[in-house]
Protein backbone atom coordinates (compact mmCIF):
# COMPACT_ATOMS: atom_id res chain seq x y z
CA UNK A 1 0.00 0.00 0.00
CA UNK A 2 1.58 3.24 -1.01
CA UNK A 3 1.25 6.63 0.66
CA UNK A 4 -1.50 7.90 -1.61
CA UNK A 5 -3.94 5.04 -0.98
CA UNK A 6 -3.22 5.45 2.71
CA UNK A 7 -4.06 9.13 2.41
CA UNK A 8 -7.30 8.28 0.58
CA UNK A 9 -8.54 6.45 3.68
CA UNK A 10 -8.73 9.76 5.55
CA UNK A 11 -12.49 10.17 5.21
CA UNK A 12 -13.60 6.57 5.65
CA UNK A 13 -11.28 5.17 8.29
CA UNK A 14 -9.82 8.06 10.27
CA UNK A 15 -12.94 9.78 11.72
CA UNK A 16 -14.59 6.67 13.24
CA UNK A 17 -11.27 5.38 14.58
CA UNK A 18 -10.51 8.76 16.13
CA UNK A 19 -14.01 9.03 17.58
CA UNK A 20 -13.88 5.58 19.18
CA UNK A 21 -10.33 6.09 20.46
CA UNK A 22 -11.04 9.45 22.08
CA UNK A 23 -14.27 8.19 23.70
CA UNK A 24 -12.55 5.10 25.09
CA UNK A 25 -9.75 7.35 26.31
CA UNK A 26 -12.20 9.56 28.20
CA UNK A 27 -13.75 6.49 29.82
CA UNK A 28 -10.41 5.03 30.76
CA UNK A 29 -9.08 8.32 32.12
CA UNK A 30 -12.14 9.28 34.14
CA UNK A 31 -13.43 5.90 35.29
CA UNK A 32 -11.11 2.95 34.82
CA UNK A 33 -7.80 4.43 35.89
CA UNK A 34 -7.12 4.02 39.63
CA UNK A 35 -7.26 7.16 41.75
CA UNK A 36 -3.85 8.48 42.67
CA UNK A 37 -3.15 8.10 46.39
CA UNK A 38 -1.50 11.46 47.06
CA UNK A 39 -3.07 13.79 44.52
CA UNK A 40 -6.54 12.30 44.26
CA UNK A 41 -8.72 12.66 41.20
CA UNK A 42 -6.97 15.76 39.84
CA UNK A 43 -4.15 13.51 38.71
CA UNK A 44 -6.48 12.30 35.94
CA UNK A 45 -5.70 15.55 34.13
CA UNK A 46 -2.37 13.92 33.29
CA UNK A 47 -4.19 11.78 30.72
CA UNK A 48 -5.04 14.84 28.64
CA UNK A 49 -2.09 17.05 29.60
CA UNK A 50 0.80 14.79 28.62
CA UNK A 51 -0.73 13.59 25.31
CA UNK A 52 -1.53 17.21 24.36
CA UNK A 53 2.07 18.20 24.97
CA UNK A 54 3.33 15.32 22.81
CA UNK A 55 0.78 16.14 20.11
CA UNK A 56 1.95 19.77 20.01
CA UNK A 57 5.60 18.72 19.64
CA UNK A 58 4.60 16.30 16.87
CA UNK A 59 2.65 19.05 15.07
CA UNK A 60 5.46 21.59 15.29
CA UNK A 61 7.89 18.94 14.10
CA UNK A 62 5.63 18.33 11.11
CA UNK A 63 5.56 22.10 10.47
CA UNK A 64 9.36 22.22 10.40
CA UNK A 65 9.65 19.17 8.14
CA UNK A 66 6.98 20.46 5.75
CA UNK A 67 8.70 23.86 5.67
CA UNK A 68 12.00 22.21 4.73
CA UNK A 69 10.24 20.19 2.02
CA UNK A 70 8.61 23.37 0.72
CA UNK A 71 11.99 25.10 0.50
CA UNK A 72 13.38 22.14 -1.44
CA UNK A 73 10.49 21.40 -3.80
CA UNK A 74 8.73 24.82 -3.93
CA UNK A 75 5.47 22.88 -4.00
CA UNK A 76 2.68 24.75 -2.22
CA UNK A 77 1.11 21.57 -0.88
CA UNK A 78 3.94 21.41 1.68
CA UNK A 79 3.22 25.01 2.64
CA UNK A 80 -0.40 23.98 3.26
CA UNK A 81 0.83 21.12 5.45
CA UNK A 82 3.09 23.42 7.45
CA UNK A 83 0.30 25.91 8.11
CA UNK A 84 -2.25 23.25 9.09
CA UNK A 85 0.19 21.53 11.43
CA UNK A 86 1.17 24.84 13.02
CA UNK A 87 -2.45 25.66 13.84
CA UNK A 88 -3.06 22.22 15.33
CA UNK A 89 0.17 22.55 17.30
CA UNK A 90 -0.96 25.90 18.68
CA UNK A 91 -4.28 24.43 19.83
CA UNK A 92 -2.58 21.55 21.62
CA UNK A 93 0.02 23.86 23.17
CA UNK A 94 -2.78 26.03 24.55
CA UNK A 95 -4.57 22.94 25.88
CA UNK A 96 -1.32 21.72 27.46
CA UNK A 97 -0.75 25.02 29.23
CA UNK A 98 -4.35 25.33 30.42
CA UNK A 99 -4.67 21.77 31.72
CA UNK A 100 -1.22 22.09 33.31
CA UNK A 101 -2.25 25.27 35.12
CA UNK A 102 -5.51 23.67 36.30
CA UNK A 103 -3.52 20.74 37.65
CA UNK A 104 -0.88 22.96 39.20
CA UNK A 105 -3.30 25.06 41.25
CA UNK A 106 -4.58 22.29 43.56
CA UNK A 107 -1.28 20.36 43.61
CA UNK A 108 1.41 23.03 43.66
CA UNK A 109 -0.78 25.82 45.00
CA UNK A 110 0.05 28.00 41.98
CA UNK A 111 -1.26 28.11 38.43
CA UNK A 112 2.07 28.97 36.93
CA UNK A 113 5.57 27.84 37.77
CA UNK A 114 8.60 29.14 35.87
CA UNK A 115 9.67 25.61 35.22
CA UNK A 116 11.88 25.14 32.13
CA UNK A 117 9.44 22.85 30.38
CA UNK A 118 6.43 25.11 30.97
CA UNK A 119 8.33 28.24 29.94
CA UNK A 120 9.72 26.59 26.82
CA UNK A 121 6.22 25.48 25.86
CA UNK A 122 4.95 29.04 26.23
CA UNK A 123 7.78 30.44 24.07
CA UNK A 124 7.12 27.70 21.51
CA UNK A 125 3.52 28.89 21.42
CA UNK A 126 4.63 32.48 20.78
CA UNK A 127 7.06 31.46 18.01
CA UNK A 128 4.52 29.47 16.04
CA UNK A 129 1.76 32.00 16.66
CA UNK A 130 4.07 34.60 15.08
CA UNK A 131 4.73 32.17 12.21
CA UNK A 132 1.05 31.66 11.56
CA UNK A 133 0.16 35.35 11.82
CA UNK A 134 2.98 36.25 9.43
CA UNK A 135 1.97 33.54 6.97
CA UNK A 136 -1.73 34.39 7.07
CA UNK A 137 -1.18 38.15 6.82
CA UNK A 138 -0.25 37.89 3.15
CA UNK A 139 -1.68 36.27 0.07
CA UNK A 140 -1.73 32.51 -0.05
CA UNK A 141 0.29 32.25 -3.26
CA UNK A 142 2.99 34.78 -2.37
CA UNK A 143 6.05 32.60 -2.80
CA UNK A 144 8.49 35.01 -1.16
CA UNK A 145 6.47 35.19 2.05
CA UNK A 146 5.91 31.44 2.01
CA UNK A 147 9.65 30.85 1.67
CA UNK A 148 10.45 33.35 4.38
CA UNK A 149 7.94 31.86 6.79
CA UNK A 150 9.29 28.38 6.11
CA UNK A 151 12.75 29.57 7.06
CA UNK A 152 11.31 31.14 10.20
CA UNK A 153 9.52 27.92 11.17
CA UNK A 154 12.73 25.91 10.77
CA UNK A 155 14.78 28.41 12.79
CA UNK A 156 12.07 28.55 15.43
CA UNK A 157 12.04 24.79 15.76
CA UNK A 158 15.83 24.59 15.96
CA UNK A 159 15.87 27.39 18.56
CA UNK A 160 13.87 25.26 21.01
CA UNK A 161 16.84 23.34 22.52
CA UNK A 162 18.68 26.63 23.11
CA UNK A 163 15.62 28.19 24.74
CA UNK A 164 15.14 25.15 26.95
CA UNK A 165 18.79 25.16 28.00
CA UNK A 166 18.83 28.86 28.78
CA UNK A 167 15.61 28.77 30.78
CA UNK A 168 16.83 25.78 32.75
CA UNK A 169 20.08 27.53 33.67
CA UNK A 170 18.16 30.67 34.48
CA UNK A 171 16.03 28.76 36.98
CA UNK A 172 18.68 26.53 38.50
CA UNK A 173 21.19 29.33 39.00
CA UNK A 174 18.56 31.26 40.93
CA UNK A 175 17.23 30.31 44.32
CA UNK A 176 13.67 29.08 44.02
CA UNK A 177 11.02 27.58 46.24
CA UNK A 178 11.18 23.83 46.18
CA UNK A 179 8.14 22.35 44.55
CA UNK A 180 7.18 18.80 45.27
CA UNK A 181 7.15 17.01 41.96
CA UNK A 182 5.29 13.97 40.89
CA UNK A 183 7.06 10.72 41.21
CA UNK A 184 7.49 9.81 37.53
CA UNK A 185 7.31 6.07 38.18
CA UNK A 186 3.66 5.36 37.45
CA UNK A 187 1.92 2.13 38.43
CA UNK A 188 1.30 -0.24 35.54
CA UNK A 189 -2.41 0.46 35.19
CA UNK A 190 -1.86 4.20 35.02
CA UNK A 191 0.96 3.71 32.56
CA UNK A 192 -1.31 1.69 30.28
CA UNK A 193 -4.03 4.36 30.40
CA UNK A 194 -1.41 7.05 29.71
CA UNK A 195 -0.06 5.16 26.72
CA UNK A 196 -3.56 4.68 25.35
CA UNK A 197 -4.36 8.38 25.82
CA UNK A 198 -1.16 9.36 24.02
CA UNK A 199 -2.09 7.14 21.09
CA UNK A 200 -5.66 8.50 21.01
CA UNK A 201 -4.70 12.17 21.16
CA UNK A 202 -1.94 11.71 18.56
CA UNK A 203 -4.59 10.17 16.30
CA UNK A 204 -6.80 13.21 16.90
CA UNK A 205 -3.87 15.49 16.03
CA UNK A 206 -3.20 13.58 12.81
CA UNK A 207 -6.86 13.80 11.84
CA UNK A 208 -6.95 17.52 12.64
CA UNK A 209 -3.85 18.13 10.55
CA UNK A 210 -5.35 16.19 7.63
CA UNK A 211 -8.53 18.27 7.88
CA UNK A 212 -6.46 21.45 8.04
CA UNK A 213 -4.42 20.45 4.99
CA UNK A 214 -7.66 19.77 3.15
CA UNK A 215 -8.91 23.27 4.01
CA UNK A 216 -5.67 24.94 2.94
CA UNK A 217 -5.62 23.01 -0.34
CA UNK A 218 -9.23 24.04 -0.98
CA UNK A 219 -8.47 27.70 -0.44
CA UNK A 220 -5.43 27.42 -2.72
CA UNK A 221 -7.67 25.89 -5.37
CA UNK A 222 -10.22 28.65 -4.92
CA UNK A 223 -7.50 31.26 -5.38
CA UNK A 224 -6.34 29.55 -8.58
CA UNK A 225 -9.87 29.38 -9.98
CA UNK A 226 -10.47 33.03 -9.15
CA UNK A 227 -7.23 33.95 -10.92
CA UNK A 228 -8.35 32.06 -14.02
CA UNK A 229 -11.79 33.65 -14.07
CA UNK A 230 -10.45 37.19 -13.93
Amino acid sequence: MNLNTLYNLRWTVLPPVVGVAITVMAGLALVSAPTEVVEGDVQRLLYVHLPSALASYLSFGITAVCSALFLITRDFKWDAGAQAAALVGLIFTALTLITGALWGRPIWGVYWQWDPRITTTLILFLIFAAYLVARKSSELDNERVARFCSVYAIIGFLDVPLIHMSVRWWRTLHPQPIVSRLDPALPTEMLLVTLFSVAAVLLVAVWFIVLGVETELLSQRLLKIKGRVR
Partner: peptide
Protein backbone atom coordinates in the same frame (compact mmCIF):
# COMPACT_ATOMS: atom_id res chain seq x y z
CA UNK B 1 5.85 41.62 12.46
CA UNK B 2 9.56 41.92 13.15
CA UNK B 3 9.42 42.27 16.97
CA UNK B 4 6.70 39.62 17.23
CA UNK B 5 8.83 37.16 15.28
CA UNK B 6 12.22 38.10 16.69
CA UNK B 7 11.59 38.42 20.43
CA UNK B 8 10.59 34.81 21.20
CA UNK B 9 13.66 33.55 19.35
CA UNK B 10 15.84 36.00 21.27
CA UNK B 11 14.90 34.70 24.72
CA UNK B 12 18.16 32.75 25.18
Amino acid sequence: MLPVMALPLLVP
